[in-house]
Amino acid sequence: MLCGLGALGWSLSAHGFGEEGAFHARLLSIRDEPLDTELTATRRWALELTRRTSAPGKLASFVVEPKSNELLKEPFLVWVGDKDPGELDQRAVRGLRQYLRMGGILVVDDRDPKKGAFLRGARREIGRVLPESTPVRLDRNHVLFKSFYIVARPQGRVIGPDSVEAIVSGKDVQVLFLAHDLLGALARQGETWALPMEEGEANAREYAIRFAVNIAMYVLCSDYKDDQVHAPFLMRRRQER
């Protein structure tokens, strides 16, 4: 906790210069639904990143609408929900399309993956945003699984499937579909975690945090860990494990 406060302190002291390019998990708001719990999760996401890595993170919570000019301010968004989001209006579709085509990354996180209504609805709407793109399953060797930690599978509050799907442009992930309630694993309520893990509390939450850190590192470094210079080292590490 002290480490976390320390990181928070550093981050706040560098507010302004140096924070311009810091990781910031902004929440996409389609309707005016309450996102208080999710905002604690995005703050925790940035905090865990700054505690564990050299990357700076913005601890300020932020919600943006797809029609807003703020959408294009930073290249990372999280769209979270537990039921079908409904149909996006045309302005929202255009806004998201521009955001993604300029290189922005969107994580779609289903808070209730057992039902899967949100993920299905979000996939449908993303299909309208990027009609020419189809989600594909990411290979286990994808850089997302080794951008900081070496992780074996995606992890969130819910164990969920052992793979993730994404819309990929070239080598770049544009939209990541998570059926693991990642923000649920990061959400806070006061001094404690807001939601229990589906199973294996301590380890599962740690792995969820690691996966979140990897997503953040991917957003900041893109495919850096795919560089040839890292390949022999990572191969050896995987064999050791």
């Binding site: 480490c3 320390g6 564990r52 930690y149 690691r210 590192m217 860990k225 990572l234």
Partner: peptide, 24 residues
């Protein structure tokens, strides 16, 4: 391109064993 980014400093609390990290 040859890239090297400092991803972790000595003060960072990675909460993982060395072999669990993809760092060189």
């Amino acid at each position: 391109l040859v890239s090297f980014f400092i991803l972790r400093t000595e003060s960072d609390q990675v909460q993982a064993e060395q072999e669990e990290l993809a760092l060189i």
